[in-house]
């Protein structure tokens, strides 16, 4: 054991136990499931995880900042509804395929707006983000039903519903978008002033205020980013389905939070990174994909994921957080 911990990879895995788990399930399914170990399937996994993955990137920012956003599933549905509906507005009837552009822009703006409202309320009222976004989750879902009249919208423009089948070279376009977002958010978090201050505010709000950091604007920016990413995810999901249903994105907030927490981000803020979140997202994606290929009923996936969530956090505590000053609970 003593020698083992000298190996850089082992030490890295101890700090990021989720990647150890990703490695194990990947190897396991490569042997256990036919058709799992192929370039095509890896691409499938990336496409399947991109929806939750995009939101998880935003959730990482918000959670490191010391907040949480439960309204992402509802925001996703609202954005998807706009993206599909705006295309069919009469004013864009003559625009041909260009009608997609204003539709997507409006959908993304709606997402940013929802995030801005969340962030602004958290900033100005000081009400806990959990409560604010819980309210937003209910409220925005209500708006979706009002807007859609409980009906699904179907995309009439085939360029839109074919978008998800496009590839760039060998890579599906959805996987590419996800990869670009991963890199962008990773750079934002690890290299920019905003990223640095996001950690500081979540890690010790008082110290951040004492250092002259304006806490509110940083929180608001992060809520706008997650709103944007949730909307983007909604748009991409609606291209895959060719439709927007009012129940789109139900429970997504829970999947997203699971992925982010699996990736080592602390619920209390101040700690986490995009590399971990990517591991968390992939762990869920691989598990769902692999068990699907093995034709395991979906319910078992839930049982296994729940167990893994607890196991990974337990390992993290064992390796990375020595007991707090002898205080036993």
């Amino acid at each position: 054991m003593a020698n083992l911990t000298q190996i850089p990879l082992v030490r890295w895995l101890m700090r990021n136990p989720i990647w150890g788990f990703v490695l194990i399930v990947f190897i396991f399914f490569s042997f256990a499931a036919d058709n799992f170990f192929s370039g095509q399937n890896v691409m499938n996994i990336l496409v399947q995880t991109s929806t939750i993955g995009l939101i998880a990137l935003g959730m990482t920012l918000v959670m490191i900042n010391g907040n949480i956003d439960l309204s992402v599933g509802a925001t996703l549905a609202l954005a998807a509804a706009f993206a599909v509906d705006v295309q069919s507005w009469a004013m864009f009837a003559t625009w041909g395929n260009w009608q997609i552009l204003p539709a997507v822009c409006i959908a993304l703006l709606v997402g940013i707006l929802m995030g801005a409202i969340n962030g602004f309320i958290v900033w100005k009222t000081g009400v806990d983000a959990f409560i604010v976004t819980l309210g937003a989750m209910l409220g925005i879902r209500g708006l979706v039903f009002v807007y859609t009249g409980e009906q699904s919208f179907y995309a009439m423009n085939f360029a839109y519903s074919d978008f998800s089948f496009l590839t760039i070279g060998p890579f599906p376009v959805l996987a590419v978008i996800f990869a670009v977002a991963v890199i962008a958010v990773h750079l934002l978090l690890s290299r920019t002033v905003h990223g640095r201050n996001t950690y500081a505010v979540g890690g010790n709000r008082e110290a951040a205020v004492n250092a002259g950091i304006r806490v509110g604007p940083h929180m608001m920016v992060n809520f706008m980013l997650i709103g944007f990413l949730a909307a983007l995810s909604g748009v991409l999901l609606s291209t895959q389905m060719g439709a927007a249903t009012p129940n789109l994105g139900r429970d997504y907030e829970l999947w997203v939070i699971t992925a982010v927490v699996l990736g080592g981000t602390k619920l209390t803020g101040g700690k986490g990174d995009i590399i971990g979140t990517l591991g968390g997202v992939l762990a869920i994606g691989i598990l769902r994909n692999g068990m699907n290929l093995m034709q395991v009923p979906a319910f078992y996936v839930l049982v296994i994921l729940g167990s893994i969530l607890i196991a990974v956090l337990f390992l993290d505590k064992r390796f990375n957080r020595p007991a707090d000053g002898g205080l036993r609970l």
Partner: peptide, 9 residues
């Protein structure tokens, strides 16, 4: 610890 440092940083 409470007001000066972000301990995880």
């Amino acid at each position: 610890k409470e007001q000066g440092l972000v301990l995880q940083m």
